[in-house]
């Protein structure tokens, strides 16, 4: 299945990749910019590079990826972006929280955004089908999934009444995510408290809030920040004996009760398609924003046991993976 998919992608984008590979001697540079530390993105960037190889864009062979990490310092983003542009990149991939700042710079290169937010409400694109002229990308559909996570929590945890939404307030669209969570909570009869964790310090500080609020569960907004601080956050939650739900498998592996969200590796792999098309001359505005089509539910049986919880048949029926 995997092989066939690779073959298909290669076939579909043969025209685009051919133009690039056929230009020997000239190294084409593309940029990767994130405000997060490098460590938070390792598996996904691997997926991105795999995708590029599928598109016959082998890093080091005619193409060079310049990575820039803000290491959680948003203020560094504009300088890094300009530096990349001055390095002669032909396009810039921007991930996560750095996107709004980069877009504000009005850089003279096409931009591919990689966001968990809703790109339209975040102002990254005019519409999914026809994004803005020089900017397109992929979204992880974070806010649509918030309600779904609350619903799953409610099914897993009997008598769920209060959920604390823990998230980075700097995350683009975090307001919408917060509103979306509150709206879903209202629909499901769950009280929602938003705890902003703009930095590692705030994560520790959140412990007091959690202790005070005594929520039945924590919904951790999945973003680069959360990934970067997942261990600290999980530590706080465990100490407070509060089960955590989030978006990506990485959190389940870190001890979260369950995660529900798109297969990120597929999305990162898909970014390579945008890179190939733009390098082949396509206008970003002609490449619609793509949303994930595959989602996975990961259950952490150990975490459930530690909270004396049992996954019902219905939940198990949904699960894609159960971690023992």
């Amino acid at each position: 299945m995997r092989n066939r998919r690779e073959l298909l992608i290669m076939t579909a984008c043969a025209a685009a990749s051919r133009g690039i590979a056929a230009t020997p001697g000239r190294v084409r540079r593309i940029g990767w910019l994130t405000a997060q530390p490098a460590a938070s993105l390792v598996p996904y960037l691997d997926a991105l590079r795999e995708g590029l190889v599928e598109q016959k864009l082998v890093p080091g062979e005619g193409i060079e990826i310049l990575y820039r990490y803000g290491d959680d310092r948003m203020d560094r983003v504009p300088a890094l972006a300009r530096e990349l542009v001055e390095s002669g990149i032909e396009l810039l991939m921007v991930q996560g929280a750095a996107i709004p700042d980069v877009l504000k710079l009005g850089l003279p290169v096409p931009i591919i955004f990689v966001t968990s937010a809703d790109p339209i409400s975040a102002g990254f694109a005019k519409s999914l089908s026809q994004p803005s002229r020089d900017c397109t990308g992929v979204t992880f559909m974070a806010f649509e999934l918030l309600g779904k996570r609350l619903e799953l929590l409610k099914e897993i945890i009997p008598g769920l009444g209060r959920v604390a939404v823990l998230g980075n307030p700097h995350h683009a669209g975090s307001d919408i995510e917060r509103a979306s969570s509150e709206e879903a909570g209202h629909r499901l009869g769950i009280a929602i408290d938003f705890i902003a964790t703009p930095n590692s310090g705030a994560v520790l500080a959140a412990r007091a809030d959690l202790a005070g609020l005594r929520p039945d569960a924590i919904s951790l907004l999945p973003d680069g920040f959360a990934i970067a601080h997942r261990k600290a956050i999980m530590a706080v939650a465990n100490e407070e004996r509060i089960p955590v739900i989030s978006g990506w498998p990485v959190f389940a592996q870190a001890g979260a009760l369950c995660t529900y969200g798109p297969r990120l590796s597929l999305i990162y792999r898909r970014i390579a398609f945008f890179v190939a098309r733009i390098l082949a001359g396509a206008r970003p505005g002609d490449l619609p924003v793509e949303r994930p089509t595959q989602f996975e539910l990961i259950l952490n049986q150990a975490a459930a046991r530690s909270f004396n919880l049992t996954f019902s048949r219905a939940i198990l029926a949904r699960a894609d993976e159960v971690i023992e």
Binding site: A12, S129, R277
Partner: peptide, 10 residues
Amino acid sequence: HPDISLVLRR
């Protein structure tokens, strides 16, 4: 369409 972008942008 093999170029899914064409579909998505209708």
